[in-house]
Design a protein around this nucleic acid. Structure first.
Lengths: 220, 220
DNA sequence: GACTGTGAAGCCATTCACAGCT
DNA sequence: AGCTGTGAATGGCTTCACAGTC
């Protein structure tokens, strides 16, 4: 169970996607799937699915496939979703508001406890059930409620500062949405979800396609 | 200039981050940087920076470094940001609203022309300057305005359907925020920005850390 | 016959180390 | 001396192909 083997991050990404798909199948009443079924409709191959699962154990039955319910339970356990993680959102602007109500988080069992904003006039208000507090209460709140994850949804200019506050308060992980490279000490896990970078990657490939189309014409 | 060499997607991601950092340096009045300077404060090495740039040409001067302004201009050109791409957002809920005002897009030169929503009562309204139209106008709008990119910010259940409409209308790329695997034909570039997957990856690493901490204790 | 689990092969990306320029 | 550009080496991920199981 405790293999110290190195697991590609891309594999984790895929496990998460598999799990969501299994949720859907479970609701649809499907009870058994093959690795082929799982990989259909995404980019990966069935071999990839099996390899990804193999990092964590043997979940299937040869000649048969996987039990949907059972496999999904295992995946959720691997992903740490068995007990719901406690989350706070920093920055109650548009993005913070959107994240606080994001179905994708709630459906997967994360509990968003509170939002925080520097703007004192927002404090006391709420984002759809979730209370908004002023920034100075963040530290105490995180400590008292043993918050696991801080979501950073502030402007780029205050991103690092916000991260520092969360780290000092004792969160274990940070999900950063600010378009700015930030850093955390090793013991605090960090992930950047860089929306503008994603838009630019798309832009790059559009340009590349244009270029190739141009070349193809020129060849005739 | 037109190297057909294969370029890692990760390299494009980094170029985008470099460019943003150069923007900042440019504003700060810095005129020359080394690959070391660029890599400082992010995870990569200076060798990586040089390799990434080498896919596209020779932008520096040996013994000296890179001209900030010049390099950034080149990066933006590579990323297709020289002429601003036209974007529409589908789904005028919280996430759509947040994206329509997202500074990270505007700062980098994307123009968000309109938002669309299935809910007719939202039509006629606006999200911070950006007009909201009913869904049935999407096709015509995309054609008439030669929209390049469609941003999908609808619930998972209607994601594929929305993608199909955008594809038929003729967008060249799609940025999907719905927590659902969707597909496009080859000629339409697709990128998924999966917020819940990112949260789950974070969750996974938190669990892993816990496990390791437990093991370390057990070893004594 | 169908499907999983896995070693081995192949492929791709990153890192190293140094030649080449200023 | 300082720094870029790059071939060669390394390391890691994915694909292949098949033995093992039902």
């Amino acid at each position: 169970m405790l293999k110290t083997e190195k697991i590609p991050e891309a594999a984790i990404t895929r496990l998460s996607v598999y799990s969501r798909h299994l949720n859907y199948l479970e609701q649809s009443g499907v009870t058994t799937v093959s690795s082929q079924d799982i990989s259909d409709g995404m980019d990966g191959s069935s071999a990839q699915v099996r390899k990804d699962l193999a990092y964590f154990g043997e979940f299937g039955t040869r000649g048969v496939g996987y039990d949907v319910r059972d496999l999904n339970r295992n995946l959720k356990k691997i992903l740490g979703l068995s007990h719901s993680l406690k989350v706070v959102i920093v920055g109650a602007g548009n993005l913070g508001a959107a994240l606080s109500q994001y179905k994708g988080f709630l459906d997967r069992g994360f509990s968003i406890l509170a939002a925080f904003d520097r703007d004192m006039s927002k404090a006391g208000g709420s984002l759809n059930q979730i209370p908004i507090y002023p920034m100075y209460k963040l530290d105490e709140f995180v400590r008292q409620n043993q918050v696991d994850i801080g979501v950073v949804a502030v402007p780029a200019a205050s991103a690092q500062e916000t991260v520092d506050i969360l780290v000092r308060a004792g969160v274990r992980g940070i999900l950063n949405f600010a378009p700015k490279a930030v850093t955390t000490p090793n013991e605090v896990e960090l992930r950047n979800v860089d929306l503008s970078v994603n838009m630019e990657i798309l832009s790059f490939y559009l340009g590349l396609k244009e270029l190739r189309a141009g070349e193809a014409e020129a060849q005739e």
